[in-house]
Amino acid sequence: MTIEHAVEAGHAAPANSTEYIAHHLTHLHNEAGTINLDTFWISAILGLVFLGIFYMASRKATAGVPGRLQNFVEMVMEIVNDTIKGAFHAKSAVIAPLAITIFVWVWLLNAMDFLPVDLLPKLLTYVGVHNLRVVPTADVNHTFAMSFSVVLCVIAFSIKAKGLGGWIKELFTAPFHAHGIAVVFLAPVNFLLQMVELVAKLISLSLRLFGNMYAGELIFILIALLPWWAQWMLGGPWAIFHILIVTLQAFVFMALTVVYLSLAVEKH
């Protein structure tokens, strides 16, 4: 980690620790301030990196002695496939590619935390960019968008498995099943609980990932404020520990997605 409080072109250096932290927690916005451009572009670039790596691995795959890239890709696919086999018992041609994409992409987004705090923000000052947050998953807007996409997949899987009519019927008849006139009285309660369940999935997925990555980003920023010798003493162990957090959060997001999709195709 490095802490460079150099003067940026046309911008004064942060005067104190508070300004330094605020500077590193400020997004690069569009002119209207409605879109976090740093989150968007870094996510898009890392998505292309993921596609490129797996495409190269597929082109170089061999039945003989595998190379390092093939070994890595096969290891990732084995982890994901084991998770799917243990949680998803229906048949779907989409679930495996979706789970692999989520796991690798979220891991890459999280892994941006390993870059030195001042590296990319400093480099981009030379092209006139003076604010940049490099960890997309530390942006709650991004984690909510990913979680919302998962909820849409849950609804789509449920409709495909049960039909539109079956899904709508389940909204009003589960989890409390009833017969006769009791169905009418319990329908609003069932519908409310179904909506609460969907919202809970959305919030749990997004805030768990956001909270862990935001805390990690903030700790790296605080370490960067220390003298250089303290940065090495504290930054190294924290970075090693953070490897576990980055991987675990990517796995948890992927595993919960598989579990939610499995519940969506089951009849209640």
Rank of each mutant, 00 (worst) to 15 (best):
H177P: 00
P97V: 12
N30Q: 08
G86R: 08
E266I: 09
A63R: 07
Y55R: 08
A57G: 05
M75N: 07
H5L: 15
V104C: 03
H23C: 03
E4G: 06
I79A: 12
E31Q: 15
I155Y: 09
K85L: 12
L207Q: 13
R59I: 08
K60P: 01
N110F: 02
P175A: 06
E170R: 13
A6C: 02
I53N: 03
I21G: 04
T137E: 07
S43D: 05
I181D: 13
V183K: 15
L263I: 02
I203R: 06
V127K: 01
P116S: 07
H130E: 10
I21Q: 09
G128M: 05
L120N: 01
A138P: 01
L209H: 07
D82A: 13
H179T: 14
N141W: 06
E78F: 06
I79E: 14
V76R: 02
L51Q: 12
H268W: 12
H27G: 09
K169I: 06
W107R: 00
N190W: 05
A174W: 08
A215S: 14
A138K: 00
A178M: 09
A255F: 04
V65R: 08
L222H: 05
W238R: 00
S147F: 02
E19L: 08
D82N: 13
V135F: 01
H29A: 10
A96P: 00
L234Q: 01
P121L: 04
V134I: 13
L261E: 04
G47T: 09
F88G: 11
I159V: 11
V265Q: 13
L123K: 07
F88D: 05
K162A: 11
F40D: 04
F172N: 12
M77Y: 11
M195F: 15
M213I: 03
